[in-house]
């Protein structure tokens, strides 16, 4: 009967990945005020940039991953400046619909450049460790560690640095922030860099723990949305709990129901949360 604890452990790893993937999404929602459907495609940009440098050009994984994350960060910033900034006055609905167009463009570009098929990074094979009968690979442990480090450093950044405080001020009240002398444009750019960079990090993680195919990004957005909604759109700390809840719920559910229903669990969570507690776990009433 070690199967259930094993699923639980895998669920924690999935949850930690989801935290990494969702934090950037929630940050965008909080500061820019809309749901960026194209966020998941940024995971794809980073994963395939890393794959290209690592496998095609033969770079070591570390510099490849670093370049992948930085590239994604810059791509995110460019999209934010070029596409979203000029239409911000049209409201969050138009921004949300536009982000589907952006997802199409990025997804199409990745498809055209990479092509169909399954790919893996050129990295040493995962070593499996056993604790109390539960198996875990070193890469899985790395995901958990990175999720923890990222959450803590993001919390420190938002609470201790000037730029972090500016981001929080802007998310709470943009007009007031602007009138108190916060450079709104600079803060917005910093947010794009940060949230896209986090998507980049999640993309690299995805490339290490999963096999890559070009439609992978779309599957992530479904789970990212589930986690973000459970947390309450725009709240950051609740993402940590809700990421773990969704991850564990999905993986543990395999114990009772067919694995094909795994994505369905995430969406049942969405529906139940929206029907009974639309403000999410964080509990801030949305206006």
């Amino acid at each position: 009967m070690t199967l259930l604890p094993q699923y639980l452990a895998t669920g924690i790893v999935s949850g930690c990945f989801l935290i990494l993937a969702t934090i950037g999404f929630s940050l965008t929602r909080r500061v820019e005020g809309f749901l960026n459907i194209a966020h998941a495609e940024l995971l794809g940009v980073s994963a395939f940039t890393t794959w290209g440098l690592n496998t095609l050009l033969g770079w070591h994984i570390l510099p490849a991953a670093a370049v992948g994350i930085v590239t994604t960060s810059l791509v995110g910033l460019c999209i934010g400046r070029l596409v979203y900034d000029p239409i911000r006055k049209l409201g969050p609905s138009v921004l949300l619909i536009t982000s589907i167009g952006v997802a199409y463009v990025i997804g199409g570009a990745i498809d055209a450049l990479i092509g169909v098929g399954i790919r893996t990074l050129t990295i040493p094979l995962a070593t499996s460790y056993k604790f109390f009968g539960i198996r875990m690979t070193d890469y899985q442990m790395m995901v958990v560690a990175l999720a923890a480090i990222t959450s803590i450093s993001l919390a420190l950044f938002l609470n201790k640095t000037k730029m972090g405080l500016a981001i929080r001020a802007m998310s709470a009240n943009p007009e007031l922030a602007a009138s108190r002398g916060i450079d709104v444009q600079k803060t917005s750019r910093a947010t794009w860099l940060l949230s896209s960079g986090l998507a980049g990090l999640a993309g690299v993680m995805l490339a290490t723990i999963a096999t890559l195919s070009t439609d992978i990004a779309f599957h992530q957005i479904l789970q990212i949305l589930a986690v973000a909604i459970l947390a309450g759109l725009g709240s950051l700390y609740a993402v940590i709990f809700s990421g773990l809840i969704v991850g564990i719920a999905m993986d543990v559910s395999v114990f009772w129901i067919p694995a094909g229903y795994r994505p369905l669990i995430a969406f049942s969570v969405v529906i139940i949360v929206l029907l009974f507690r639309p403000e999410g776990l964080a509990g801030r009433k949305s206006s």
Binding site: V83, L90, T98, Y104, V105, G108, A109, G115
Partner: peptide
Amino acid sequence: IASSVEHMMTGLIFIIILR
């Protein structure tokens, strides 16, 4: 490639028109 480019074009037209 053509079908991917078609996807990209559709997305681009979409963004341009919304703007």
